[in-house]
Amino acid sequence: MTLDAGANLRKGVAEFAVLALLRGEPMYGWQLSQQLIERGGFIASIGTLYPLLARLRAKDWVTTYDEASDAGPARRYYRLTDEGRAALADFRAQWSGFSASVDALLEGTTQDD
């Protein structure tokens, strides 16, 4: 199989990439989509984003609210919830350990001895 390992990795962390982006401020769909694509190809297309956001909403990690914009209809913003913040912290804690393990494996050293 010649599956793109990078694409699979990015897909695996896309949910947490969204949580990380929302940590600072609420964002709307297009903003999130552009950030996720530009900052490392976490999603392939804006089409990938909305099922992902629906999952995050189902888990109560994000909520939405509508806000009027200067032109056109109201924009739907996504905001991190406390649960989402906790999930992100949890991921962060696991990530450093995980990435250290992977590094160690790749470099051929062992952690124990």
Binding site: Y28, G29, W30, I46, G47, L49, Y50, P51, L53, A54, S69, D70, A71, G72, P73, A74, R75, R76
Partner: peptide
């Protein structure tokens, strides 16, 4: 439905006004 509607609404809000 929720996803289909979200996609269309998300892209509509981005295109209108341009």
């Amino acid at each position: 439905q929720p996803v289909a509607g979200d996609i269309v609404a998300g892209i509509r809000e981005e295109l209108s006004g341009l």
